[in-house]
């Protein structure tokens, strides 16, 4: 099933609107909500990006944490300039993911899934064991420079939107086709001289760079980070966004993140019901609406059009 490519200009308009909203919102909570939604959207889009090669990469959560810790360590412990700390987040995440991918992408399917899960939990464990970076309590005191502090949500929203467009751009490129080819039948790319392992690593690295940047931005948005923010659960939620929004469409992760983040605000804090809510959403979305909200919208539109004729 091939879904028509979305109106890219509509997406650009939407992104600009989001940034403007973050810039002009009088209530800081609303502005930060935009950042929160876009952060989740990047996480979900990155998870979906690796699904292109057919792998479920739980370590998306780990690289989000790596980005956040990189930025925070450079900012708080080393006192490096803002721009540099933000630049290093995607770089370090990408570098680490290249190593991770080089070892683990020899496996696939269930093994890769399990290893990426174990990796995520181990990285989190490592944070808790290092006293310099605050152990279990993490790091505090990452602040954007005065010049952009007031408009930080808009700044972060712009960069996150750019990351989303970058992922989309790669997906639409020839490289994206190679990723899909690997998922479809990896013998074909191998037979025509393509290095499949390298391409898989590249796919994981690109996704990791995007979530690494999101992690760095998250550190400045939140001012405080802790190991528990980066458990495998982050990837599970990202998966819920992808599933509810619709895996088949590049906008799926964004729609899913927006809907679930907004609805999630209502159930947040009541941990038992939060769990049941997210769990039920995943189960129902998977069993009843395999195409997610976007797939559902497509079907409804089809029905309406069919009726109009």
């Amino acid at each position: 099933m091939q879904i028509r490519s979305p109106g890219v200009w509509a997406c650009v308009a939407l992104a600009v609107a989001a940034v403007l909203f973050a810039l002009l919102a009088t209530n800081p909570y609303h502005a930060s909500l935009v950042v929160w939604i876009l952060t989740n959207a990047v996480l979900a889009a990155a998870l979906r990006f690796v699904l292109q090669i057919g792998e479920l990469n739980i370590a998306t959560a780990a690289f989000f944490g790596v980005g956040a810790y990189t930025t925070s360590i450079c900012a708080v412990l080393l006192g490096w300039p803002f721009w540099l700390t933000l630049l290093l987040a995607p770089l370090v995440a990408a570098l680490l993911s290249a190593l991770f991918g080089w070892v683990t992408l020899r496996t696939k399917g269930p093994y890769f899934l399990l290893v990426s899960f174990a990796f995520t939990e181990v990285v989190r464990l490592i944070y808790t064991q290092i006293n310099v970076i605050g152990g279990n309590s993490g790091l505090v005191g990452m602040f954007p420079p005065m010049a952009i502090d007031a408009h930080y949500p808009a700044f972060a929203a712009a960069l996150l939107a750019a990351a989303l467009f970058a992922l989309y751009g790669v997906e639409r490129s020839d490289l994206g086709r190679l990723f899909k080819a690997i998922r479809n039948n990896d013998a074909i790319p191998r037979s025509v001289g393509l290095n499949v392992v390298f391409l898989k690593v590249l796919c994981v690295v690109i996704a990791a760079a995007a979530v690494g940047l999101a992690g760095g931005l998250h550190a400045y948005a939140n001012n405080v980070i802790a190991p528990s923010d980066f458990s495998y659960f982050v990837a599970i939620l990202a998966l819920a966004y992808v599933k509810i929004g619709g895996e088949g469409h590049p906008m799926g992760p964004v729609v899913g993140a927006a809907v679930l983040t907004l609805v999630g605000q209502r159930v947040a804090g009541i941990s038992a019901w939060e769990n049941i809510f997210y769990g039920a959403v995943i189960v129902v979305a998977l069993l009843a609406f395999p195409g997610g909200l976007i797939g559902l919208a497509g079907r409804v539109r089809g029905l309406v059009r069919g009726g109009a004729r």
Partner: peptide
């Protein structure tokens, strides 16, 4: 394959979910 020996397959010999253009494009990549 990069040296110039390219094969086809008896079964699963193409990218069944992708368009003809994309199939050949992968070959040319």
């Amino acid at each position: 394959s990069r040296m110039g020996l390219v094969r086809t397959f008896q079964h699963d010999s193409l990218l069944s979910e992708m368009s003809v253009v994309d199939n050949i494009l992968v070959g040319a990549s």
